[in-house]
């Protein structure tokens, strides 16, 4: 039996890979299909998981009238298409921005700042009495990186030297991140090549 799924996926994969030669109509077509299908998929999933499950079913099925508030606010977003009433769309945006900012303050202080600081402040001497080089590196790295991003004083003299050290730590981080990014892209590419050679063209087992 012909596996149409593999044939379609194989042709589309090859169409995208043609971009390696140069931009061409095949690639543009595959890209356009991807844009359309992705938007359509997102629309369906958002409609089902958010609007139907969280709004329409509880509102019209269980008569949760409090849900009329987000329904009205959501509908106000469409006023953007009517230039005379477009100002109304600022109200739902204000709700989203305000509540998002309100949630962000304690969450950011707790998760991004306090937890990172508490993880950095660790004993610098191990139980055997020897200095813990790793803990020292982390402490120096965090302080020097923060000083690098401190722009209220000119990076000169002692501050400048510490900021310079921060640059080295940042470069190690960027290099490591780059290495991992390359590896993840490579593994995806290997996966696609395996699909083309094994499943689509049957050239390898």
């Amino acid at each position: 039996m012909i596996d149409w799924g593999t044939i379609v996926a194989g042709i589309l994969t090859l169409a995208v890979l043609t971009f390696l030669y140069r931009d061409n109509p095949l690639y543009k077509m595959a890209e356009s299909i991807l844009i359309g299908i992705s938007i359509g998929y997102t629309l369906v999933i958002v409609w089902q998981t958010t609007l139907v499950d969280l709004l329409f079913d509880p509102l019209f099925g269980d008569s949760r009238l409090s849900l009329l508030i987000p329904l009205i606010l959501g509908l106000l977003m469409f006023s953007r298409f009517l230039s005379k009433y477009s100002f109304l769309s600022k109200i739902p945006i204000a709700v989203m921005i305000g509540s998002g900012a309100g949630v962000a303050i304690p969450v950011m202080i707790e998760a991004r700042t306090m937890k990172q600081i508490s993880a950095t402040v660790a004993p610098l001497v191990s139980s055997s009495g020897m200095p813990d080089i790793s803990a020292l590196v982390v402490l120096v790295g965090v302080i020097s990186t923060l000083i690098y991003f401190y722009f209220s004083r000119e990076h000169k003299g002692f501050i400048g030297r510490i900021a310079n050290l921060g640059t080295y730590f940042l470069m190690i981080f960027f290099g490591a991140t780059f290495g991992y990014t390359v590896m993840s892209r490579m593994s995806t590419l290997i996966g696609r090549m395996e699909f083309i050679l094994t499943d689509f063209l049957h050239l390898t087992q």
Binding site: V140, F149, F173
Partner: peptide
């Protein structure tokens, strides 16, 4: 070292 820089950025 990479984690230290990451922490600095996160803070």
């Amino acid at each position: 070292p990479a984690m230290a820089a990451r922490r600095g950025i996160l803070i």
